[in-house]
Design a protein around this nucleic acid. Sequence first.
DNA 1: TAGGTATTTAGGTAAATACCTAAATTTGTT
DNA 2: AACAAATTTAGGTATTTACCTAAATACCTA
Lengths: 101, 101
Amino acid sequence: MNLLEVIKSLSNQTRLNILTWLKDPFACFPAEELADYSPALGVCVSDIAKKAEMSIPTVSVYLKNMSTAGLLVATRKDQWTYYKRNEDAIQQLAQLIKDNL
Amino acid sequence: MNLLEVIKSLSNQTRLNILTWLKDPFACFPAEELADYSPALGVCVSDIAKKAEMSIPTVSVYLKNMSTAGLLVATRKDQWTYYKRNEDAIQQLAQLIKDNL
DNA sequence: TAGGTATTTAGGTAAATACCTAAATTTGTT
DNA sequence: AACAAATTTAGGTATTTACCTAAATACCTA
């Protein structure tokens, strides 16, 4: 885990919001958009962009940024890319701050 | 604690370094500069700037930034400003990431 | 009060980040 | 093959951040 890379990835309100929305998709996204929701996959780019009220390209790069940093896991299925949280990485980050920062 | 403010404060390698140097000043700063060191005060601006190999004004604003965010505690004594870590804030951050992020 | 040391504030430039729209790509369906 | 949907890549502008030097301020001591 590259601490600076992870922290930079979190240093934006929208990206921080996305991470918390993905904790509980049913509470944060309209039910009809989660018709085919599976915890193993997560939520697709355009649903997240709509929730964020930002353009799809912007959110697409945010999501890629977060998955490169290790905070999210991307899964391509058909023409969709789904993103879910990487809980292990988030706990690892908390531990690293607790012990080493 | 304003999470975004704290994270932004940490999103720079030099500021991250400063925080870790202050964990163990004796290991990280030359002994002669710590002649009057006290854990209650910490280390002064110019000693930190020298260690960081950056200009004093730049490091001065970094330190103020981190203390505004709550990560450091500043103490003015005579013509020096000393900075030390705010351990409580750092542990609070770790806990917040663990539980709420 | 004059002079010295430490720090802060002001003001500037270069690089990075935050967004956007348009174009290209991927993948599924007629 | 042709079209459509979702995403990514490219390319652009505005804002923020990362630094610096010079000037101003704070605080000490003679």
